[in-house]
């Protein structure tokens, strides 16, 4: 289980003044659970992931994974693919796998499953944005992560590519039984992916609402159940979701925004 208890996380803003990014943020994620964190821009979602992932340790609070501070076994997907341009696709995936003798076979299987079997030896600069994200996804899963942290990993992709990547993610997650903390500002994406959706307030960010989706099985952001759930949430908590993009008027605006 992942247990997050952050009393306070500050950093200096551009003017050098202290900015409180997170305050009294408590969140528990069960092993194997897929939790999405939704919040308006600037509410500290990425900061939260950085703290949980150990990229930022200057924080008052604690993060416990299975009874101890997180060590290894954490996969991280950033907003950009962040592949090493000088390593081939396969080398990029193997970079994080350590000396595990079974890793090369696993990496190849993962890349094959993601339809990247014919670009093992290509450099990332030659791949499309969608293919680069798939490599980043393979890199995250090659270590069979106990915890997977995802920071709006499918942002700025076209809608069909993002849908395909979400389906791949859900498949891999089911296979690995990883605990996933997925940050997004897209409510529909969160409802389509998560077992549970946690809503953050504006800065200083804290969890103000947790909502179990109650939806099972693979689903797309445009499924009727997802849209109905979205409508229900927006009706019940209009102020809470005021900072999020509004998708109520046009069912296709999600695609328009994702293309932007």
């Amino acid at each position: 289980m992942l247990d997050i208890d952050i009393s306070r996380k500050c950093y200096p803003d551009r003017g050098g003044r202290k900015h409180v990014a997170l305050a009294d943020l408590r969140l528990q994620v069960q092993t194997g659970e897929f939790v999405c964190v939704v919040g308006p821009s600037g509410c500290g979602k990425s900061t939260l992931l950085n703290v949980v992932g150990g990229l930022d340790s200057d924080v008052t609070g604690r993060v416990i994974l299975d009874g101890q501070p997180p060590q290894g076994g954490i996969g991280f997907m950033f907003q950009e693919p962040r592949l090493m341009p000088w390593l081939t696709v396969l080398e990029n995936v193997l970079l994080v796998a350590g000396d595990d003798p079974t890793a090369p076979a696993r990496a190849r299987d993962l890349l094959q499953a993601m339809e990247l079997g014919d670009v093992f030896d290509a450099y990332p600069g030659r791949l499309s944005g969608g293919m680069q994200r798939r490599v980043a996804l393979a890199r995250a899963f090659v270590i069979e992560p106990r915890l997977l942290l995802m920071d709006e990993p499918f942002v700025s992709l076209d809608a069909p590519t993002a849908d395909r990547l979400r389906a791949m993610l859900v498949n891999l997650w089911r296979r690995c039984n990883s605990t996933v903390l997925f940050v997004t500002h897209d409510l529909r994406e969160a409802l389509a992916l998560g077992d549970r959706v946690c809503f953050m307030s504006g800065a200083p960010g804290r969890v103000v609402l947790e909502w179990s989706t109650g939806l099972t099985g693979p689903r797309s952001p445009n499924d009727a159940a997802v849209l109905a759930l979205q409508r229900e949430l927006l009706e019940r908590y209009p102020e809470l979701l005021a900072g999020l993009p509004d998708h109520t008027n046009n069912e296709n605006d999600w695609e328009v925004r994702a293309d932007a």
Binding site: I74, R82, L95, I143
Partner: peptide, 27 residues
Amino acid sequence: PRLMQVASAYRLPRWRTLSRVYLPQLY
């Protein structure tokens, strides 16, 4: 720094970070 964050996030050993992530940027 974003590539260095990848190395930190995946807890790469120092030598691997130096040889596969850091030095290639300096080549």
